[in-house]
């Protein structure tokens, strides 16, 4: 058994597991991009430096605001859409197709498209609202503007999963609810939501991880500007590694992000499990 299994798994180890373990180990070294730099073990120095780095704290704060609001808004918007798509409405097909499009689009095109939407002169937002704001360069508006794009681009996956979840709710439950005289709202609150719970927990967890690790969309839209207001942790890590060449430091940042994400997920899943039981 083992003999047959191993050759098949070796390429996976080389391509997938190996780099990650190597990457994690770099977090405990002072690796730099310079070819002549001799890498040596640095213990927890990188992590100590992170804790004292204001840019790190700013990017974690931006990352939290971004990931929590995008995940929450995505969930609410997608739940609404999934409920509508689950009804027999005309135009349902159009909405279904339209809701899937962002999933297929290259993130770069999504970013460029929203740059056109937010463009201060040639964009549609200013001319529709009658405002004169340079959305993506404004200290107040840049992050909200980026969050709207984040919600838009992540709706397909969330909607699809919630819709599939809705379709597994047994019809008899609704019939029983209707006989007991429960209205639409009561049925939603007492039947749909509890039945959907495992699906909701799974997809919001996944969304949160994806959003926290987001890079391309925001990089194309703002490059982290203005003044770091939209610099997500991954943009910060990219700059440290490939603009300034601090590989060890960036790897430590990556490890710190994994720890934070896993800790948050752990608390979230634990609370959900406790409430469910």
């Amino acid at each position: 058994m083992w003999v047959l299994l191993l050759p098949a798994l070796v390429p996976v180890l080389i391509f997938s597991v190996g780099p990650l373990l190597y990457g994690i180990s770099l977090a405990f070294t002072d690796a730099e991009s310079g070819r002549n730099h001799v890498t040596s073990f640095a213990g927890l120095d990188n992590f100590a430096a992170l804790l004292g780095d204001d840019d790190f704290w700013q990017s974690m704060q931006v990352g939290m605001i971004w990931a929590v609001s995008v995940t929450a808004l995505q969930f609410l918007a997608s739940l609404g859409l999934a409920l509508l798509l689950n009804e027999r409405l005309a135009l349902r097909g159009v909405a279904r197709v339209l809701a899937m499009v962002p999933w297929a689009m290259p993130p770069v095109v999504i970013g460029l498209m929203w740059r056109l939407v937010y463009h201060p002169d040639a964009g549609i937002v200013n001319s529709t609202l009658g405002t004169d704001i340079n959305w993506l360069a404004d200290f107040t508006w840049a992050l909200p503007a980026v969050i709207v794009m984040g919600v838009w681009s992540g709706m397909p996956q969330t909607t699809v999963v919630l819709l599939a979840g809705l379709q597994t709710v047994p019809r008899e439950l609704y019939e029983a609810g209707a006989m007991d005289g429960a209205g639409t709202w009561r049925r939603f609150w007492n039947i749909t939501l509890p039945q959907l719970r495992p699906v909701i927990v799974a997809i919001t967890s996944l969304d949160f991880v994806w959003n926290f690790n987001q890079f391309s969309l925001v990089y194309v839209l703002t490059q982290g500007g203005p003044g770091g207001r939209t610099r997500l942790p991954m943009l910060f890590a990219y700059e440290e590694a490939f603009r300034y060449g601090f590989f060890g430091y960036a790897a430590a940042l990556g490890v710190a992000i994994v720890v934070v994400v896993l800790a948050l997920l752990g608390v979230y899943l634990w609370r959900q499990l406790r409430e469910a039981s």
Binding site: P19, L20, Y22, A31, M234, A241, G254, I257, V258, V261
Partner: peptide, 17 residues
């Protein structure tokens, strides 16, 4: 699990190799 890890932990070692 690999879905949880940020790209930076994969791309730096790959880049070095």
């Amino acid at each position: 699990v690999s879905q949880v890890f940020p790209f930076i932990l994969i791309i730096i070692p790959l880049f070095m190799v």
